[in-house]
Design a protein around this nucleic acid. Structure first.
Lengths: 230, 230
DNA sequence: AGCTCAAATCTTGTATACTAGTCAACCATT
DNA sequence: AATGGTTGACTAGTATACAAGATTTGAGCT
């Protein structure tokens, strides 16, 4: 049986419920399954060629991540966006990441300097090429490296979990070259502040950086009200 | 069927799996089930008078909270303490709560002022009476009210989740009157700083407050190495 | 055409049974 | 006494079936 590394570094088997979970997680966060979509254990089981039980387990885990809404005797729905949940997720993510960069500014793992710089270089190339997908991937890795730099690798799991709430929302917006450039500039400035040990400056730029999503989210709410709960 | 309010304010039925989850969660966090204890779906099902399936679902949720370690074809174990996990949980909890009090110092919900003050008064009484259990309960409520004050009610769910990792550890330590007094003083100073709009002072005192656990956790590690994984 | 109501259908929650992997106990051999 | 192999018990993962609540659909009536 194929084995995979999972959280906390334990070697673990691939199970049917794990496969279902991974696939649905990706479909939801990439908006291949839109908010409000009804899905049932029976249908998903059929499409994966398994019984309801592993599907049920995957549903339980996804519900725990606030991505599915399970109700007895009624079809499960892909949880609509919740402005409250999004605000909370953004707050939590910002709080953790602000503390991470503060920690990094004071006492960082310098072995992460090179991968961070390399990532920034690749970001510049992605912006030049107008490659949104690549830029998003590098952005993800950049924030992951920030956690490693601040010696808080585990924190990224929480950040990633909360990012899932926001990332699927951002799938609804276009990312212009100007927007990518602004994010890239933020990353540069942040790294400069961190490497210079300036916790205050790092704090300031990251707040600005994370706040750039606000108009995007507001715009999405205006144009996609149907995807939001009340 | 009895109904209960759950997260996100939805009215929800009580299910067998919910009952099992709640009971095991409490047993684990109160150390009635010690780290390293082996439990099986079959045994738990028997003791609750239900089938394995709702027990399995509860296990899945508890595993998601890092309280159980499920391994295929082997007995599930109550997750031993992990110094890495504890450090991470404390970091995350501190990050969120620091941002909460910063937010509260700047723009708090003043309707929470009275309940906060009332809680502090009750804390003073609990310290005088040497009532550790009551003090812990009030401490929990105090931090919950801080989130409400900072208009970040949702954040407490994450804090509570991460606190669970640390709280079950602290069940192993005695809380002296001196320790309670120190915590109470911190709460007083924190509230003063928040009400005075002094974000910096609030930040400083909360860091000290949350750091008070460090010697406690170190002492527990020394005296209870058997409860920790490597 | 619209309304009401009963039946059918769909759904999750739970019970039970089967499969396959892990581990400890036991026994044979050296 | 130590070691290695075998076997049975124990375990989670999964399949299948039943119960009960929610929703949909269609027939009958006005």
């Amino acid at each position: 049986m194929k084995q995979t590394m999972v959280a906390l570094g334990t070697l673990e088997r691939t199970t049917s419920s794990g496969v279902v979970f991974d696939t649905l997680f990706e479909q939801i966060t990439r908006l291949e399954l839109l908010p409000g979509t009804k899905i049932s254990e029976t249908d998903v089981a059929k499409s994966f060629g398994v019984s309801r039980q592993p599907v049920r387990e995957a549903f339980t885990r996804l519900a725990g991540l606030n991505l599915l809404l399970i109700r007895p005797q009624r079809a499960t729905i892909v949880r609509p966006f919740s402005r409250k949940l999004i605000a909370s997720a953004r707050f939590v993510r910002a709080a953790i990441e602000l503390e991470v960069v503060r920690a990094a500014a004071k006492d960082r793992d310098t072995s992460i300097d090179a991968p961070l710089k390399a990532n920034l270089k690749q970001q510049a190339d992605a912006v030049s090429a107008g490659d949104v997908t690549l830029f998003h991937e590098l952005d993800y890795q950049f924030h992951q490296l920030l956690c490693a730099s601040g010696k808080q690798t585990f924190a990224f799991a929480i950040i990633a979990e909360n990012k899932a709430q926001v990332d699927r929302l951002c799938m609804l917006s276009l990312t212009s070259k100007e927007a990518m450039e602004a994010l890239y500039e933020d990353h540069q400035t942040l790294l400069k502040a961190m490497f210079g040990g300036d916790a205050k400056a790092a704090d300031d730029v990251l707040r600005v950086h994370l706040d750039r999503l606000t108009p995007t989210i507001d715009a999405i709410y205006t144009t996609h009200k149907g995807y939001f709960d009340e």
